[in-house]
């Protein structure tokens, strides 16, 4: 085993996949030798693979994503580096409409492309550089969505995303970039659509993604002191969603809280809640709770942003509303 930071694990996955498959290349803004992307995920790759495969583009998001689609449709395996997930809005048509080529063409084409983008609040980056967009993106048919919470998951899932023959949005959280974790020396991949139970428990199931997984784990430790045992499930991929693991957990605990770093309305949390209400209602002993952000754009000032983000305290409060502590 070796220790790597989250963003280093991403770089290592990119490096390994580029070495493995010459049809893999990356196109995006400022990913070359002078910056390596705003979070350093592409650091060192231009030196190793050259500017033909690490292609710095103009500030032209529609050309990046549209170009990746055209390249994927004609035999290459592009990675579109979109910088912040918020910028996917700039390439809205490509994301919403052009990505659905395979279906529109009656299955005659494969679109093996990966979109890499950074998500998340917590860096005082305000409304246009802090979104998560899980709920928004999951409504786009033909797109798979990955949101890893640890360096291990990031590396294994990115390798799978690149090898997938469909468009995959690989969303990394900006506040996790420096997080350290153990990575095996040998190669490994993690399948999409397979949740990871980050902590086992028996009283309440908490489902969370990315940064929220860590807040849930911290909250779980505090709740343990009050005699409440929390199971933390990290789906790791928003789509396809491993609903079976969540349902099995709810069958065991009878209680579900979803923690999601998005405005509550139209969120991914709403979809998870609906699935459990539809498919596991009989196992529930309490109402499903959602711990989400308020329905506002993301504010700048750290004091406002802290208020906006779903917190450990908010999660603890939600858990205590459906599960009384042991006296």
């Amino acid at each position: 085993m070796k220790e790597l930071r989250y963003n280093q694990a991403i770089s290592e996955a990119l490096d390994e996949e580029m070495a493995r498959d010459p049809s893999v290349f990356i196109m995006g803004e400022d990913i070359g030798e002078h910056w390596g992307g705003p979070f350093g995920q592409f650091h060192g790759l231009a030196e190793k693979y050259g500017t033909k495969r690490i292609r710095e583009t103009p500030i032209s998001e529609t050309a990046i994503l549209g170009g990746a689609i055209g390249a994927a449709a004609t035999g290459l395996r592009p990675i579109a580096a979109m910088m912040f997930v918020d910028f996917l809005g700039v390439s809205g048509d490509e994301l919403l409409n052009q990505l659905q080529m395979r279906y529109m063409f009656g299955g005659k084409i494969k679109l093996p492309l990966t979109i890499i983008a950074v998500t998340g609040a917590g860096a005082a980056a305000a409304a246009q550089h802090s979104k998560s967009l899980y709920g928004w993106l999951m409504n786009i048919q033909s797109l798979k969505i990955v949101a890893p919470a640890t360096p291990y998951d990031a590396k294994g899932l990115l390798k799978t995303a690149i090898r997938d023959d469909n468009p995959v949005a690989f969303l990394t959280h900006k506040m996790l970039g420096g997080m350290k974790g153990q990575i095996p020396e040998e190669e490994y991949t993690i399948p999409l659509g397979q949740a990871d139970t980050k902590r086992e428990g028996k009283d309440v199931t908490v489902v969370a993604l990315a940064l929220m997984v860590h807040r849930a784990l911290n909250a779980a430790k505090k709740l343990e002191e009050q005699g409440i045992s929390i199971e933390v499930i990290d789906p790791r991929t928003v789509k396809p969603l491993d609903k079976e693991t969540i349902i099995q957990s709810v069958k065991k605990t009878g209680r579900l809280v979803i923690m999601d770093e998005e405005p509550k309305t139209g969120s991914w949390a709403g979809e998870v809640a609906a699935i459990i209400a539809e498919e596991a209602f009989d196992y529930l002993d309490a109402p499903i709770k959602r711990v989400c952000a308020p329905d506002t754009p993301i504010p700048f000032s750290p004091v406002l942003e802290k208020f906006w983000m779903p917190s450990e305290e908010a999660l603890i409060k939600a858990v205590l509303e459906i599960k009384k502590p042991k006296a």
């Binding site: 549209g66 170009g67 055209g70 390249a71 449709a73 004609t74 035999g75 409409n97």
Partner: peptide
């Protein structure tokens, strides 16, 4: 590489195919 329902939707796809 397809007709296209979006006006101007094929322009970048053409660029991508040319890059490929």
């Amino acid at each position: 590489l397809g007709a296209n329902g979006i006006v101007g939707g094929g322009i970048n796809i053409a660029g991508g195919a040319a890059l490929s």
